[in-house]
Design a protein around this nucleic acid. Structure first.
Lengths: 181, 181
DNA sequence: AATTTATGTCAGTCATGTTGACATATATGC
DNA sequence: GCATATATGTCAACATGACTGACATAAATT
């Protein structure tokens, strides 16, 4: 076999596998089922590619996706507390601890005692942290910008509405309450 | 402190962290930056919740998210080959191998020698595999259905357009070429 | 007959998540 | 002031799922 087809799965030929759709032709549920499955797959493919570039950059520096998340959200909410971060990421304190202390140690994040509640360690990015944040987020911002531009403003509204609907909690939806006017 | 606020990060008070937006007020790039960051975060929150329920079900049965992906795509493309699966998942052969052989051993997936190319192992779900696939996918289908219903058909079109734009490769976009009419 | 392809496997490593227990400092309620 | 709750950190042990690199086999292709 030449390699003409090898990079394209299911690229043709009599034995090309076809999606299994469960119900048969005229059933009105058929389309709905197919539509929903496509959404499931789109989420998988889009998220896989969305995280791919930052993952590469991180790996070159001995960091992982978990570090990216922490850097991202600390950059987004400067002075946030550890518990806020735990609420957002929905991982355990121990999982965060490992990642966070590494980031502090390697100079990406600085901790400062809270003035109101002195038990809190308020988290902020160092200059190095900001630089890394920009480097990582830039790839994702470009990707989204490209998709938004290609799809148009109405599509963007639709995308946002569906994404909000997919989330489980109102608390998370509320983060997006203030639309950019 | 009472727990009135503890479940809602940033729920108020003078010290509530605010998003850092980089550029200042009147800059037209400001809104764009905020809009793009919201998209980045929506992808994170939506995907986190989207995978949460299946992950729980899987964990109860000693399986993980990787098993779900394999079960899902084999259910979707019955008779698919191992290399097709590798192309879709974009993981290494070794990573897939462990997951796949466990699924075969535990009776979720059966392998059959290809008739055209006898090197191939064509993958299909067993009855038990189908049952598991339904169990797992049902939670995600319901979630998407709810989001689609709430957002409306135009929003769904927009969602699809943006998701396609986020993907890296035309090969993946092509999977969604045949719209449900 | 030589090469390529499809698949499988072994050994080792790393990142990231988990649970459960325990420790410390600080804040809050009575 | 004392008891309790909260915010944070830390230890040990473990599982999953990704990786690399090397090697093996059978079948297809050239």
């Amino acid at each position: 076999m030449t390699d003409i087809n090898s990079s394209k799965p299911f690229s043709g030929g009599p034995n090309r596998p076809r999606p299994r759709t469960g119900k048969s032709g005229g059933n009105p549920l058929f389309l709905r089922e197919e539509e929903l499955r496509q959404a499931i797959e789109m989420l998988f493919f889009a998220y896989r590619d969305f995280t791919g570039e930052p993952d590469k950059i991180l790996a070159e520096r001995g960091l992982g996706r978990a570090h990216h998340r922490v850097i991202y959200f600390v950059g987004r909410y400067p002075g946030m507390t550890v518990s806020s971060l735990l609420d957002i990421l929905k991982i355990t304190k121990q999982s965060l601890s490992r990642v966070l202390s590494q980031l502090v140690q390697e100079g990406y994040i600085s901790q400062e005692q809270g003035s109101v509640d002195r038990r809190q360690r308020l988290l902020t990015l160092t200059d190095q942290g900001h630089e890394m944040e920009r480097l990582l987020t830039e790839t994702q911002r470009k990707r989204i910008a490209r998709a938004y531009r290609a799809a148009g403003p109405e599509a963007v509204e639709g995308f946002r509405a569906v994404m909000l609907g997919i989330m489980s909690s109102d608390d998370d939806r509320d983060r997006f309450g203030d639309r950019p006017e």
